[in-house]
Simulated assay, not measured.
Amino acid sequence: MLRRTLLRNGALAALAGSLWRGSCEPAGVSPAARTTPAGPQAPYGPLRPPNTDGLALPEGFSSRVVARTGRKVAGLRWHPAPDGGACFPDGDGWIYVSNSEVPVVGGASALRFGADGRVREAYRILSGTDVNCAGGATPWRTWLSCEEVERGRVFECDPYGTRSARPRLAMGRFKHEAAACDPEHEVVYLTEDEPDGCFYRFTPTDWGDLTEGRLEVLCGEGREVRWRKVPQPAALHQQTRHQVEQARHFNGGEGCYFSGGVCYFTTKGDNKVWAYDAERSTLEVIYDRHSPLTGVDNITGTPAGDLFVAEDGGNMEINVITPERLVVPFLRLDGHGRSEITGPAFSPDGTRLYFSSQRGRSGVREGTDGHTFEVTGPFRAASG
């Protein structure tokens, strides 16, 4: 059973639980993260030399490329600029969904894996949308795909490919980045990728139905924070982030991940990782450095309490922030220096990590060389 993360006096409650609930479960870490060399004291040990995929991984881990932009996988031509992603259970297998961060035809695609790890099927779950960046999974097993454009929308998609995607306009029209569900308080947290962006929460009228509800913005400059209602979430002329005078502004909101009563989110403009304690309405910075983690972006976690934070640029790493407040590289991708790492997500059993190199080795902004990877190995299990 998951236990609430405590951010009081730097204490941390160990977290446990089933990973299959997706982005609305696991992970926990206390403030004042510190760095350590990736030696024996690190959770997975030092990185080995890069393998044939260009991935430097710890001992015991292996990788493969499961999809590449422009190439067919299970009959589907994989989309350009793969970005935010999530995994969902599917019988004896699982599904990985991935956004496409390109204009006009962005949308999202899905890979259906069998129990043996082979891709059984690939298909589109969203089409004709604009610059779909990150998003988040819901407890009722849908995917929230977010448009990172002026007056962007959130689309609720069916990862199983049976129902059409629907826009959720009550969640606001702004430059959406990521979303994370809080099933304890029945709200969805949202980040905004602007230099003066805001951090939002959406409370649906009925939990499980995002058609209607109340959008609020985080306010307050200190540790103690509060929420104020956004008067016109879909206003044509007044930006959402400028409608509430007391709103707190963040420099480039990026990834967003909820676990154990805490919503973690990143801000790329100042390279920080934040932790909002929903029970106490407090806000902490848990990472505020420029080494080893640079260009903080997408974020996910594990039942062991580890946060996995991907870099946009930097030296193309995914770093782990452990419950012991250590920050260490988990993997490094060589030969993709003009790209960014996107869409980290764990399979339901926690043994496989999926992510993409959005622009691949070519570095072309349109993402015509995107690589989607799978890393398999002995990820730490939940404690307790």
Rank of each mutant, 00 (worst) to 15 (best):
residue 1 M to K: 15
residue 3 R to A: 06
residue 5 T to S: 12
residue 6 L to E: 09
residue 11 A to T: 15
residue 11 A to S: 14
residue 17 G to Y: 04
residue 19 L to K: 09
residue 22 G to W: 07
residue 22 G to C: 13
residue 22 G to S: 13
residue 23 S to N: 15
residue 29 V to P: 08
residue 30 S to I: 01
residue 31 P to Q: 08
residue 33 A to K: 04
residue 35 T to E: 14
residue 37 P to Q: 11
residue 44 Y to L: 02
residue 48 R to T: 12
residue 49 P to R: 13
residue 53 D to W: 08
residue 63 S to W: 08
residue 66 V to C: 03
residue 68 R to Q: 14
residue 74 A to L: 12
residue 76 L to R: 06
residue 79 H to W: 10
residue 80 P to I: 00
residue 82 P to W: 09
residue 84 G to K: 06
residue 84 G to L: 10
residue 90 D to T: 10
residue 91 G to V: 12
residue 93 G to R: 09
residue 94 W to E: 07
residue 94 W to P: 06
residue 94 W to C: 11
residue 94 W to A: 11
residue 95 I to L: 12
residue 97 V to D: 00
residue 99 N to P: 07
residue 100 S to Y: 07
residue 101 E to M: 08
residue 105 V to D: 14
residue 106 G to K: 05
residue 106 G to S: 06
residue 109 S to L: 02
residue 113 F to K: 12
residue 113 F to V: 13
residue 122 A to E: 06
residue 125 I to H: 01
residue 126 L to I: 06
residue 127 S to L: 10
residue 129 T to G: 01
residue 134 A to S: 14
residue 139 P to H: 10
residue 142 T to D: 08
residue 144 L to M: 14
residue 147 E to A: 07
residue 147 E to Q: 13
residue 148 E to G: 00
residue 149 V to D: 05
residue 152 G to H: 13
residue 154 V to E: 01
residue 154 V to A: 06
residue 155 F to G: 03
residue 159 P to Q: 12
residue 160 Y to T: 10
residue 165 A to D: 05
residue 167 P to V: 13
residue 172 G to V: 07
residue 172 G to D: 05
residue 175 K to S: 11
residue 176 H to G: 05
residue 176 H to A: 12
residue 177 E to A: 03
residue 181 C to Y: 12
residue 182 D to R: 07
residue 182 D to T: 10
residue 184 E to D: 13
residue 184 E to A: 13
residue 185 H to A: 11
residue 185 H to D: 05
residue 187 V to F: 04
residue 191 T to E: 08
residue 191 T to H: 07
residue 192 E to H: 08
residue 195 P to Y: 06
residue 195 P to C: 05
residue 195 P to F: 04
residue 199 F to C: 05
residue 200 Y to Q: 08
residue 203 T to Y: 06
residue 203 T to I: 03
residue 203 T to V: 10
residue 204 P to D: 13
residue 205 T to I: 02
residue 209 D to F: 09
residue 212 E to N: 11
residue 215 L to A: 09
residue 216 E to G: 02
residue 219 C to Y: 00
residue 219 C to M: 02
residue 221 E to S: 15
residue 224 E to Y: 10
residue 225 V to K: 08
residue 246 Q to Y: 06
residue 249 H to N: 02
residue 253 G to P: 00
residue 255 G to R: 03
residue 255 G to M: 09
residue 261 G to E: 02
residue 278 A to W: 11
residue 279 E to W: 11
residue 283 L to H: 00
residue 284 E to P: 07
residue 285 V to S: 03
residue 287 Y to E: 03
residue 290 H to K: 14
residue 297 D to M: 01
residue 299 I to L: 12
residue 300 T to C: 14
residue 303 P to K: 01
residue 303 P to T: 14
residue 305 G to I: 01
residue 312 D to N: 15
residue 313 G to N: 03
residue 314 G to H: 05
residue 316 M to E: 05
residue 319 N to P: 07
residue 323 P to G: 10
residue 325 R to F: 01
residue 325 R to I: 04
residue 333 L to P: 00
residue 334 D to Q: 11
residue 336 H to A: 09
residue 338 R to N: 10
residue 340 E to C: 11
residue 341 I to E: 02
residue 341 I to G: 04
residue 349 D to L: 04
residue 349 D to T: 04
residue 351 T to I: 00
residue 352 R to I: 11
residue 357 S to E: 03
residue 362 S to P: 03
residue 363 G to Y: 08
residue 365 R to W: 12
residue 373 F to W: 02
residue 375 V to M: 07
residue 376 T to F: 07
residue 379 F to G: 01
residue 380 R to V: 12
residue 380 R to T: 11
residue 383 S to N: 08
